[in-house]
Design a protein around this nucleic acid. Structure first.
Lengths: 106, 106
DNA sequence: GATCTATGAATGAACG
DNA sequence: CGTTCATTCATAGATC
């Protein structure tokens, strides 16, 4: 499979990021497991992870500005830890995110 | 095709605001060069690609007759190039067309 | 012209 | 790492 000549999929042509209004609710800070509501989940799906706007912004900054295309496990861990304040996220999510973006950049 | 129940999409909900600055390398910039050729798509809409009858016929022939389910990037490029004489089309359109048909066949 | 359906597009996850 | 799968979002076009 030769991918060289393909320039498909503009990276983030139109990220479906609905700026859903922040729930002004005052619910307690109890951690919601894989649920969704406390930390701006963005998408109503429960199964797969979706970055919050803040997470996405940071990830893109790392990728494009800092030119970090393939983070090491340590970096992944570090990034993940940092992003957790913006919503639920695991190391593998970070890993996949970078891997996918890199693969689709061409 | 599997008849799946569509979830109601509130109009207000899907206001997708492009938060991020548009990447200057957007293919959407070039509108289909003044159609009015022989094989104009059903409508001169810029938004999403829709195959012309000829394009569709060829794609289906490749998929069903030639049993080409997952074209390689070269094949995609080749197909795309061939189909361009029947209307505007990009590599990613071909790519998605095959991916979608294959995914929905099961 | 509102609703429904087929299908283009996107992307997280996983495979070989 | 390139490719493939799964699921979802978005919308063109048909139908009512």
């Amino acid at each position: 499979m030769e991918p060289r000549t393909l320039q498909l999929m503009e990276l983030q042509t139109q990220q479906q990021m609905e700026l859903q209004a922040q729930q002004p609710t005052e619910e307690g800070g109890s951690i919601q497991a894989a649920g969704s509501s406390a930390n701006t989940p963005i998408r109503p799906t429960n199964n797969r992870w979706t970055p919050t706007l803040d997470q996405l912004r940071i990830l893109q900054e790392l990728y494009y500005d800092k030119v970090l295309k393939s983070p090491t496990p340590e970096q992944i861990q570090e990034i993940c830890l940092h992003l957790q304040q913006y919503g639920q996220i695991e190391g593998k999510n970070v890993f996949f995110w970078f891997q996918n973006l890199k693969a689709r950049e061409r």
